[in-house]
Each structure stands twice: as structure tokens, then as C-alpha cells.
């Protein structure tokens, strides 16, 4: 038995570096589309690389935006600047509370905001956050929070991408990388402050209705509550916001009320503005649940008025 266990242990010690070597080799010599479980995309969709580069050199701000693409495509710092507020947008594509927590831990002391606006799109709460992990692993520095969270994901693609990302960082392969501010493939323009502007319109809304489902994995709920508790400890008010969506993405009244009952007691306020731009959706959206620039301008003005009327805006 001892001989067998020793062999198993030695094999494990042999297999781990061998596994790492194969992952690095596979990621290096063939395109990523060729293997399903490494997804490394530095400078990929959503300008996360540009955003974090800027975040690393930005100081204190009045308002910090957190959340998914609805955050970084929904709150334009230029509009808030005109209203007298400095702001930064830390959203990223399909970001779930687990990844929000990683970014929060890394940047909260640097930004030291007077107010946090947290986009709550229920769908992101219900996922494992794999897509967002891959985005972070490709574009963010590997720190302790990210590595531990990636390990905890129990997902082969996340682990493999983490290995490949670590190798690229350790061997200096990312040095000198720059991401263009405009991606013509997506018509996305990176705007300082973490925002991404999209000017597309003439979106044709569908009629199929999206059904509400609230079943977040426990780790997402824990991460969400951790952010809220940490902010409370720091004395930073948190506004939870459901940003505008088109009518088919609108939940039924009873589901909206249920979400309201769930979220309202957790933060300073919960604002369900999901129907704020109903009526002319082709004008304000570029897909079923993302606003174009015109929609963002309309929504941000409305959002600022809403906060002001409730006395939730910090002094500029």
C-alpha cells in the first residue's frame, strides 16, 4: 500500500508540471479556437484591459460604478462630470458579484468613492461567471484575490486560462501590449473613466419575453453581500440599479416586486429603472438590454434627477 501511495504521490508531482507544460504548449502553438478549454483574449471584447490600465493610474472619485456590461455601457462619466462629479466605471462583460468582489477589493481604497452605483442584472447573479473570469484572467493583473477565486470556480477552462495567463505574465509576453481605443469590429469606443460608447441604433426589438429566474449560486450571493457589508463598514452608500431594458426583457410586475422586496433592504436604495426608456426602443437600444449612446444620455440625466430628488447624491 505504501508503495502504491508513494507512486501516486510521485505521479501527481510529475503530472502537475507536465499538465502545465501541455497547457502552455497548446495555448502557444495553436489558435485558441482549437481547444475548448483555454480561452485567453487579451484586449478582447469590452475594453477591460484599457479600463484597468486607467484604473491603476486614477485617484479618488466621487462615484464608482460596478457591475456587468450594463454598468460600463450604461453610465457615462462625461455626463456625471458635467453634473460636477468625478466617476469611474469598473464594469466588465458578464461580470458577476464574484468578479465584482475581486475588482472591489483591488480598487476600493484607491478610488475611495463617496457613492457606489451597483448594476444588478439578475441574469448575471444566476451564472457561474466563467465568461467574466476569462475576461479578467486575460486582462487583469493576477493577484491573490483573482487566483483564489479562479481556483474556487472548479472550472477547467478557468483553471487552464489562469495557467496560460500566469505563464504569459511571468515570461513577459504581455509587456508592450496596447489595446486600441476604438474597435471597429464592434463599433465600440473606449471613453476615459471606464465607459464604452456605442452609437448603433435601429435595433429591432423582439417580441419573445424573457422570464425571470432568481436562483443565484451561494457564492454569488455571498460575494454580493460581502461587497455591501464592506461598503457599509467604510461608510460608502450603495445604490443598486436595474438599468433600462427593452420590453421583452422586462420582468412581470409580480417578479419586479419580488426583486424589489429582496434588494431594497440590502442597500441604501434599490432603483428599478428597467422600464425607464420604454416607448422608443429602436432609438435608445442597440440590443434587447443594452442602451446606445442616445439611450445612455437620456437614462443618465434621468438617473441623476432621480438621485437628486431622493437626496442620494453626495456633495460634489
Amino acid at each position: 500500500m505504501r508503495s502504491y501511495l508513494t507512486s501516486v504521490l510521485l505521479f501527481v508531482l510529475f503530472a502537475i508540471p507536465a499538465y502545465v507544460a501541455v497547457i502552455i504548449l497548446a495555448g502557444t502553438v495553436s489558435p485558441f479556437s482549437q481547444h475548448r478549454n483555454i480561452k485567453y483574449a487579451r484586449g478582447g471584447y469590452g475594453h477591460l484591459y484599457n479600463r484597468l490600465q486607467e484604473a491603476d493610474t486614477t485617484g479618488q472619485v466621487d462615484i464608482l460604478f460596478l457591475g456587468s456590461s450594463h454598468a460600463y455601457r450604461g453610465f457615462d462619466p462625461r455626463i456625471f462630470s458635467k453634473a460636477g462629479y468625478t466617476s469611474f466605471n469598473l464594469g466588465s462583460s458578464s461580470q458577476t458579484p464574484v468578479q465584482t468582489k475581486i475588482l472591489y477589493e483591488r480598487y476600493i481604497d484607491r478610488f475611495n468613492p463617496k457613492l457606489i452605483v451597483f448594476d444588478v442584472f439578475p441574469t448575471t447573479f444566476n451564472t457561474e461567471g466563467v465568461e467574466s473570469f476569462l475576461n479578467l484572467l486575460s486582462n487583469a493583473p493576477l493577484d491573490r484575490h483573482l487566483i483564489l477565486a479562479a481556483l474556487d470556480s472548479r472550472h477547467a477552462t478557468v483553471w487552464n486560462t489562469a495557467i496560460f495567463s500566469a505563464w504569459r505574465i511571468l515570461t513577459g509576453r504581455n509587456i508592450g501590449f496596447t489595446e486600441p481605443l476604438f474597435r471597429d469590429t464592434d463599433n465600440d469606443l473606449y471613453v476615459p473613466g471606464g465607459y464604452v460608447e456605442k452609437s448603433g441604433k435601429d435595433f429591432k426589438p423582439t417580441t419573445s419575453r424573457v422570464h425571470f429566474k432568481w436562483s443565484p449560486p451561494s457564492n454569488q450571493w455571498q460575494a454580493f453581500n460581502h461587497i455591501l457589508a464592506a461598503s457599509k463598514n467604510k461608510g460608502i452608500p450603495v445604490i443598486l440599479v436595474h438599468t433600462p431594458v427593452t420590453a421583452p426583457y422586462q420582468y412581470l410586475p409580480e417578479d419586479r416586486m419580488a426583486l424589489d422586496r429582496l434588494l431594497r433592504p440590502l442597500a441604501t436604495a434599490y432603483l428599478d429603472l428597467s422600464d425607464a426608456l420604454h416607448g422608443d426602443e429602436a432609438e435608445f437600444f442597440y440590443d434587447g438590454h443594452h442602451m446606445n449612446q442616445k439611450g445612455v444620455e437620456q437614462f443618465n440625466a434621468l438617473f441623476l434627477d432621480n438621485l437628486a430628488s431622493r437626496g442620494l447624491l453626495p456633495p460634489p
Binding site: 505521479f11 503530472a15 501541455v22 497547457i23 475548448r36 478549454n37 483555454i38 477547467a156 483553471w159
Partner: peptide
């Protein structure tokens, strides 16, 4: 032994690379 274990490790790595998650 290192070559044989390398072969087994390659099979494990292929599982890690190509398995459905």
C-alpha cells in the same frame, strides 16, 4: 518511467483541454 508517466500526463492534459465543462 518518465516517458510512460509523460504519456499518462498527456492523456490527463487532453482531458483538461477537451472535456466538456
Amino acid at each position: 518511467r518518465p516517458v510512460r508517466w509523460g504519456f499518462y500526463s498527456m492523456l490527463i492534459a487532453m482531458i483538461g483541454l477537451f472535456m466538456r465543462t
